[in-house]
Write a protein that binds this DNA or RNA. Structure first.
Length: 745
DNA sequence: AGAGCTCACTTTTTT
DNA sequence: AGTGAGCTCT
């Protein structure tokens, strides 16, 4: 980590030197955990162990990459053949090679959330189960929970009304996945474990080939991951796990804090090493972190210490609303850069949920000069519609059984194949137990369920796919991507529509093509299959690009493992952080507390905590009391209490208030002692009254939106003050926006 | 068949 | 406040 003077301290050295047998390293935040793992890998390789016999597992791609790079730097050469990656990527790789026994071909595809939902909806329709009564989302989350617990469809036991339905859908869903030659995220883990459970010889083979196994962030492993590790290390039993129970933040994904608490019990003779010296943070930061975490009941007692005494006191900001909070952050960043010699990449801003990033982004852009930033996670590049379209074409080329991909692209760009036709194909496919593509092929060539026009169109589509699929394995992925875009008419249809949005989409597509080229350049065996796998397992593109000179924005979850000289934690309010869904569940609240601990302990020197007295959330303005975590932090650690006023209404600011006949913002004023009163409230803001007739409807009026410019109102829904306007903008087409965010013209 | 419009629902957090 | 599914109108 940061300042360890190149030397390992005694417990670190002991952990690096540990030879054989199970080892548990309890590594507090900032205690040099990554250092220990990388030094250990380097030592093993240096002493002549074949890197192919080392398996190192992490939770994120970023962590895996960093670990590899640091280990390579230590021994000053490339480490070829080392098994290092996330649980999911390692499983994906094993299944690629050995998945036959669990029903996966070598070119199987990985389904993401959206794909899963499409498939589940289809299954529910087949099983005649109402999607209204049973949300596909919820059903999938039950299935995922089962998979994380190691429960297969056959083993799944219903225990109540809802799980009764799940018990019916789980096996049907798995059958459908198998027909599509696809695995979802949960399958990657569970199927690998099933494979190893069932195939004694394979387990022997793999576990004896992995002489040393290392697991990072062990506190976040769930039961399948735990079993996977156990199976893969069963021959040599050289298993080194590193973790910190205080940083266990993935309970919702099935992580069992017990795995780390019970490691000694499950591995008799395990050596336990505690790393408690912190090299990252000032004493002030550690004290604050400790004050928050020590209120948790379920934890191993430990106390981090540092020899950096004192430190910068914490700044606490109380803002009237989230926009002001964001302006506070932006102005402090400028101050730090101007006065404290900071660069932008010294600064990170953490929030509890992605939705909170918007206000911050806007403030950073509005700052003068604008502050460069990078958002981690959130809306992935790969989630954009046009990107998914192209990827689905590619998936379909290597995996003709991928019905989900086919459904996505069969009418994109529009080629006159409508819902009815697709439904007929689905019926035909499930009746004959064949893939949709085969059903389409059959329908086009023989007397199938389709009539003349539809049959011809479907035939053309099949011809298109067949032509594209020819020679797939000998063609560069980037070439294939370009061919898809041209031959399918995708680019042409974008060009034809001519909107600004279409231009953006075309740009995104060409960005994707160049990222495929990059992949080809950087990868030895750059096949389409390996590219698609990488994309499915990548969190986002910022994963790959490491741009300098940017402030980092991310959720607390994705902040784990990172450190920054200056940290802002925003939105410290009851219901935001801790999250509303944790408030009435003590165990969940403990997890939120650990999350707060993770956030604080990322800080090296300067910590800013902020909250807003009221904020827009899910379309509503609501006042929330301060986070209970704030009151845990001892008074003497806080240097400055910044209170802020809202910006006076700017000329181009949205009209502040409702204004439809008699509508009032009937939100309660915050009633806290330090409540701030908005005396600069702009009484003269223009009204919407004149836009609508007596019924509050109609009038072909125009409004102005900050981003989209001038547009024409099409319709109006909702109740004051939360009105939704559907406005047609020349630039981006129809958008539904809230009345507060437009200005009448 | 397709475009447009309305409504409902959403939100933790990630692989 | 954005998205997506379903309905209606063309």
């Amino acid at each position: 980590m940061s300042a360890n003077n190149g030397q390992l301290n005694p417990p670190q050295a002991q952990a690096v030197a540990h030879q054989d047998g199970p080892l548990l390293v309890l590594a507090g935040a900032g205690s040099g955990k990554t250092r220990v793992i990388t030094q250990r890998i380097a030592r093993l390789v240096d002493e002549g162990l074949d890197p192919r016999r080392i398996l190192a597992v992490t939770f994120t791609n970023k962590a895996a990459r960093e670990m590899r790079e640091r280990a390579e730097r230590l021994i000053a050469r490339r480490i070829a053949g080392l098994w290092i990656g996330t649980f999911h990527s390692i499983c994906a790789r094993l299944l690629r090679r050995y998945g036959d026994a669990v029903g996966l071909s070598p070119s199987y595809v990985i389904y993401d959330d959206g794909d899963q939902r499409t498939l589940m909806r289809q299954v529910m329709r087949q099983e005649a189960i109402s999607e209204r009564l049973f949300a596909p989302r919820d059903v999938l989350s039950h299935i995922d929970r089962a998979k994380n617990a190691g429960t297969s469809a056959e083993q799944y036991q219903a225990h109540d009304y809802f799980s009764d339905i799940v018990a019916r859908l789980y096996p049907a869903y798995q059958r459908q996945l198998q027909r599509c030659d696809a695995a979802d995220f949960g399958d990657l883990l569970l199927k690998t474990v099933q494979l190893l459970r069932a195939d004694e010889a394979l387990r022997q083979h793999l576990s004896s080939s992995f002489e040393q196994v290392l697991v990072d962030e062990f506190q976040d492993t769930n039961p399948v991951q735990y079993e996977l590790i156990r199976l893969l290390s069963s021959t040599h039993n050289n298993i080194c796990v590193v973790g910190d129970d205080d940083q266990s933040i993935y309970r919702w994904r099935g992580a069992q804090i017990e795995n780390i608490l019970g490691f000694e019990r499950d591995h008799p003779g395990a050596q336990v090493i505690k790393l408690e010296q912190n090299y990252r943070s000032s004493q002030v930061v550690l004290d604050a972190a400790h004050a928050v975490i020590s209120r948790n009941a379920q934890r191993k007692a430990k106390q981090l210490w540092t020899d950096q005494q004192g430190g910068e006191p914490i700044t606490l900001c109380v803002a009237p609303d989230e926009r002001t909070e964001a302006r506070f952050v932006a102005s402090r960043i400028h101050q730090l850069v101007a006065q404290a010699g900071h660069t932008f990449d010294d600064v990170a801003i953490f929030y509890r949920t992605h939705a909170q990033s918007r206000a911050i982004e806007e403030a950073l852009r509005a700052a003068s000069p604008p502050i460069p930033y990078a958002v981690y996670g959130g809306m992935r590049f790969y989630d954009r519609a046009e990107i998914k379209d192209l990827l689905c074409y590619l998936k379909l080329l290597i995996n003709p059984a991928d019905d989900v991909a086919l459904q996505r692209v069969i009418n994109v760009p529009a080629r006159g194949i409508g819902k009815t036709t697709v439904e007929k194909l689905i019926g035909h496919a499930s009746a004959h137990g064949i893939s949709l593509l085969d059903a389409a092929r059959a329908a086009a060539t023989s007397d199938g369920p389709l009539g003349g026009a539809a049959r011809r169109k479907v035939g053309d589509f099949v011809k298109l796919i067949d032509a594209l699929a020819e020679g797939v394995s000998e063609t560069l992925p980037s070439t294939l991507a370009e061919r898809v875009l041209d031959d399918s008419g995708y680019l042409q249809s974008l060009a034809q529509s001519g909107t600004v949005e279409a231009t953006t989409r075309a740009e995104n597509l060409s960005e994707l093509v160049s990222s495929i080229r990059q992949f080809e350049a950087a990868t030895e065996e750059a096949t389409l299959v390996s590219y698609l796998e990488q994309v499915s397992l990548a969190t986002d593109v910022t994963d790959q690009t490491n741009e300098q000179g940017q402030v980092s924005l991310m959720t607390v979850h994705s902040a784990k493992g990172l450190e920054f000289p200056t940290v802002f934690v925003i939105g410290l309010e009851q219901g935001i952080f801790p999250h509303a869904r944790s408030l009435d569940a003590p165990e969940e609240l403990e997890e939120e507390r650990r999350l707060a601990y993770v956030a604080i302990t990322r800080t090296k020197r300067r910590l800013f905590l902020s909250r807003a007295m009221q904020r827009w959330h899910l379309g509503q303005l609501k006042a929330r009391p301060p986070s209970e975590f704030l009151s845990d932090i001892p008074e003497q650690l806080i240097g400055e209490r910044a209170g802020l006023h809202a910006a006076p209404a700017r000329r181009n600011a949205p009209a502040r208030l409702p204004a439809f006949a008699g509508a009032h913002l009937d939100q309660p004023e915050p009633t806290y002692d330090d409540a701030w009163v908005d005396d600069e409230f702009d009484q003269s803001a223009p009204d919407f009254d004149d836009l609508f007739d007596a019924d509050g409807f109609r009038v072909g009026m125009r409004v102005k939106h900050r981003k989209f410019g001038v547009g024409e109102i099409r319709s109006l829904t909702g109740t004051a003050p939360n009105l939704n306007l559907t406005v047609y903008f020349k630039t981006v087409g129809a958008k539904t926006i809230r009345s507060q965010f437009v200005e009448p013209l």
